[in-house]
């Protein structure tokens, strides 16, 4: 069964392109969100396997969203989705924030592909 994905980014052009790209590569994009609040709501509702999460969101930053998605209040980490952070900046711009956020990993936007996602999900 295809991996279900939620795409979170405030740029519609990126969401559209990423959706196309991931669907071509065999992923099932079940939803899109424009900011952190929408992302948390959609993740709870859609229960995706994977959240592709932009770091720079207009409301809450991506690290905080990742942290909330991966450490739910009931203390059962396995119930949350896998989170992969993305940005047009390089991961070195964020220091240790990626590691501390609970995300599986980080992919620069320009390098997004099914293969790069799969490598982090293994």
């Amino acid at each position: 069964m295809a991996v279900t994905v939620l795409i979170v980014d405030d740029h519609p052009s990126f969401r559209a392109t990423a959706r196309l790209l991931l669907e071509v590569e065999g992923y099932d994009v079940v939803g899109e969100a424009r900011d952190g609040a929408e992302a948390i709501e959609a993740a709870g509702r859609l229960k995706p396997d994977l959240v592709l999460l932009d770091v720079n969101l207009p409301d809450i930053d991506g690290f905080e969203v990742a942290s909330r998605l991966t450490k739910p209040a009931n203390g059962t980490p396995s119930s949350g989705p896998a989170v992969i952070l993305t940005s047009s900046r390089d991961s070195s711009d964020f220091g240790s924030l990626v590691g501390a956020s609970g995300a599986r990993g980080f992919i620069p936007k320009a390098e997004l592909s099914g293969a790069s996602l799969a490598a982090l999900l293994e």
Partner: peptide, 14 residues
């Protein structure tokens, strides 16, 4: 420019 170049890169990948 950076967002446009990112989109460009993805479109080329696709």
């Amino acid at each position: 420019a950076q967002q446009r170049l990112v989109a460009l890169s993805l479109q080329v990948n696709l």
